[in-house]
């Protein structure tokens, strides 16, 4: 099956991209293409055929027009790509590939959960094409880089022709495939804070070890003070609700405590209470609930171990 006809616009600068988006409110953004090009290819069995232009009237209601909005391809925009380490945060360009996230020593060290999420996404081939921004903007509840980004408190930087704004990833993702990107806007980069004595981890449950959609994914991040108490934590749950879920109860239950086994168990139970999974062909609600609790316990345990052994920048020569 060939791809339907569409127009591709190829901006050579960010400003040009924003102008194009401004001029085409129905445009879609093409980054790595690993989701968009799959979605664009018509299925053999589909509820309504795509009727070529000019024929729709003869068929009447119920038949879709071929998609007509242009794709704005971001492949030429170098400034959207790459990871940069600043004093207290990492700045990740939106078209940084998932493979770059997975292999980044910077992320491995400071934001391990994101590197682990990236390494768990799809396959090596998909990771070489798929982008961080694309994975976030597709807003699948099981997305392997989105869930850690939620746990790590990512902030998204959005640009418009005449303005920019920042929005937290939690506020950005509204539902499966639904995001708070306004017409004409573009995700330029993601900012992720990191801290001394921070540890994080991402765990994904699936049947297969690669090329797998998470039945449950859990990302956990813990920041300790010098006494080993939790000063900040983030636990995000994937595939157990319409969006990744940031567990407020878990954070509250851990705050100010030394994260021993009992504290982690209590926090994991809190995570289970916040999960809202459905039963589908991938797993049942009951199994997902149980796994949320288990994976939260395991992810938190690992995050705490990493936080304890982490030498924060400046603390160690």
């Amino acid at each position: 099956m060939v791809l339907p006809s569409f127009q591709v616009l190829i901006p050579s600068s960010l400003q040009e991209a924003l102008d194009m988006l401004d001029g085409h409110p129905d445009a879609r953004l093409l980054a790595g293409g690993t989701d968009l090009l799959v979605d664009l290819r018509p299925a053999v069995i589909r509820s309504a055929p795509f009727v070529p232009q000019g024929y729709a009237d003869e068929w009447g209601i119920g038949y879709q027009q071929e998609p007509s909005g242009p794709l704005v391809s971001l492949h030429g925009l170098e400034q959207l790509r790459g990871l940069r380490s600043l004093t207290s945060h990492v700045r990740a360009g939106a078209t940084t590939t998932v493979a770059e996230l997975a292999s980044s020593p910077l992320l491995r060290k400071h934001l391990t959960a994101l590197a682990e999420g990236a390494a768990a996404l799809g396959t090596p081939l998909v990771r070489n094409r798929g982008t961080y921004g694309g994975n976030i903007c597709n807003a699948r509840p099981a997305a392997d880089t989105l869930v850690p980004t939620v746990a790590l408190g990512g902030t998204l930087h959005l640009a418009h022709k005449n303005s920019t704004r920042k929005v937290s990833v939690v506020d950005f993702v509204l539902g499966p495939g639904r995001i708070a990107l306004r017409a004409g806007e573009l995700l330029t980069h993601i900012q992720l804070p990191f801290f001394p004595r921070q540890g994080s981890a991402y765990l994904k449950l699936g049947t297969r070890k690669a090329l797998e959609i998470a039945q449950v994914g859990v990302a956990a991040s813990v920041v300790l003070d010098q006494a080993g108490r939790v000063v900040h934590s983030g636990v995000a749950l994937g595939a157990v609700g319409p969006t990744p879920i940031l567990c407020h109860g878990t954070a509250e239950s851990l705050h100010g405590h030394v994260p021993d086994q009992a504290a982690i168990r209590a926090a994991s139970l809190a995570a289970r209470r916040e999960a809202a999974p459905i039963s589908d062909h991938r797993a049942s609600r009951e199994y997902r609930l149980e796994m949320v609790q288990l994976l939260t316990r395991r992810a938190l345990t690992r995050a705490v171990e990493r936080a304890r052994s982490a030498a924060a920048p400046g603390e160690q020569s």
Partner: peptide
Amino acid sequence: KYDDQGRILNANLAEYKIPTAMD
């Protein structure tokens, strides 16, 4: 896998799972 109308839910190699080299 099928839905209740007899449509295949996983007519692709992402969700019809055969072992990868890692499996």
